[in-house]
């Protein structure tokens, strides 16, 4: 009871804290100075039509690098905590488990039809990140969803960890390498003007932004695929245990 009392006090104090914030939020009439500068100079400076992308990839590129690093560390933590070899030593081993059931014909064929389309859609999203809404993170998530579809539809699907770790580390390496190239050839770390800006609004424009965002997409896609593959309890694994 006394615990509940303290909880109520805490939540009420928090509400009291945010109440003035809520009252003071007035709709702005103008953009904040930084945002206005991005909006005025961004399209000519970087050549990207999507200003959110130019903020993420170039203006705040270092933050995105740090964010991808956090994602990598979290993925490594998931993989470390759910190691495969410990899965075999569950308490109460030897209890007969449900036998793995093959997916139905409809699910199998549907996943074979949808998987390439989903992969293509993911690649499309991160290649067009500088023109349309979307980008590396969304495209990576779509790729991870495509892999999830395969994992759900195929009983005996195993992730190839060699390919995943290769793609993941190579894209991370090239991300930093492009950043350092920007330091040498252009104005600073992760500057996208190491390549010609091209014609505004076409696919091959905005300098290195499509390349950087594709690398981010591959990295996010493989990392999230790895999280899903680690957290998934494979049926074959259960079968081996019995």
């Amino acid at each position: 009871m006394i615990k509940k009392f303290f909880t109520i006090i805490t939540v009420l104090l928090f509400a009291l804290m945010v109440l003035p914030l809520l009252r003071q939020i007035a709709p702005f009439e103008e953009l904040a100075p930084v945002a206005a500068a991005y909006a005025e100079q961004g399209p000519d400076q970087l050549g990207a039509a999507n200003l959110v992308t130019s903020v993420i990839v170039t203006y705040r590129g270092l933050d995105t690098l740090g964010e991808v690093t956090v994602l990598f560390i979290a993925t490594a933590g998931v993989g470390f905590l759910l190691r495969r070899d410990e899965e075999d030593q569950l308490p109460g081993d030897g209890v007969p488990r449900e036998t793995p059931r093959e997916a139905s014909e409809l699910l199998g064929s549907g996943s074979m039809l949808l998987f390439p389309l989903l992969m293509l859609f993911g690649v499309y999203i991160f290649l067009h990140g500088h023109l349309t809404p979307g980008g590396g993170f969304q495209g990576g998530v779509v790729i991870a969803s495509a892999m999830l579809l395969l994992m759900l539809a195929r009983v005996s699907f195993h992730l190839n960890h060699l390919i995943i770790s290769l793609v993941e580390s190579l894209s991370g390496f090239f991300y930093v390498a492009i950043g350092v190239l920007g330091l040498i050839l252009a104005a600073g770390f992760l500057d996208n003007r190491i390549l010609p800006l091209g014609e505004f609004g076409t696919l091959l424009s905005a300098g290195a932004i499509p390349i950087i965002y594709s690398l981010v997409g591959l990295k996010v896609g493989t990392e999230l695929t790895n999280v899903l593959g680690t957290m998934r309890l494979t049926r074959t694994q259960q079968e081996e245990d019995v």
Binding site: G135, V141, L228
Partner: peptide, 23 residues
């Protein structure tokens, strides 16, 4: 904010739910 909408639809309601269900 269409970028955020895409991300939230794909991650917030898609993958987060899947991760919860897998756990």
């Amino acid at each position: 904010a269409p970028d955020v909408a895409m991300t939230e639809a794909a991650i917030g309601s898609g993958l987060t739910t899947v991760v919860f269900l897998l756990a």
